[in-house]
Amino acid sequence: MLTIERALYDKIVAHARADHPDEACGIVAGPVGSDQPTRFIAMTNAERSPTFYRFDSMEQLRVWREMDDNDEEPVVIYHSHTATEAYPSRTDISYASEPNAHYVLVSTRDPEAEEFRSFRIVDGEVTEEEVRVV
């Protein structure tokens, strides 16, 4: 289960809406081993595409070093799908490399109602989990 504060949830959705129709991406960092997302970090989608995302590699290095210095890890890795459902694509699965992360997918295909879902992706296996907003 992913437990996430309302304010962080809202920031993820707002980022996805702001970058629509391109895919938005980012992370929520938290203390190593805590499973608690605390620090929202919007990342640049270097692809600037409605169908792909990729963290800008230099920005990623900077953010990953910051997390190392703070004893943090990416607790949530999020991105949006802008025309399809909030479910990991084959591409998402093939790139997923953080077995401890919650992979959050937001779909912005409906301008009125967002879909916000969370998954574990381990060795190519996708498992959806409950999202508890607190």
Partner: peptide, 19 residues
């Protein structure tokens, strides 16, 4: 030298993807 997993994906299926 630092190695990081690329964080990427997206709705479109990857041409020539791993699976």
């Amino acid at each position: 030298v630092t190695v990081l997993p690329a964080v990427a994906g997206g709705a479109a299926d990857l041409p020539g993807g791993r699976r």
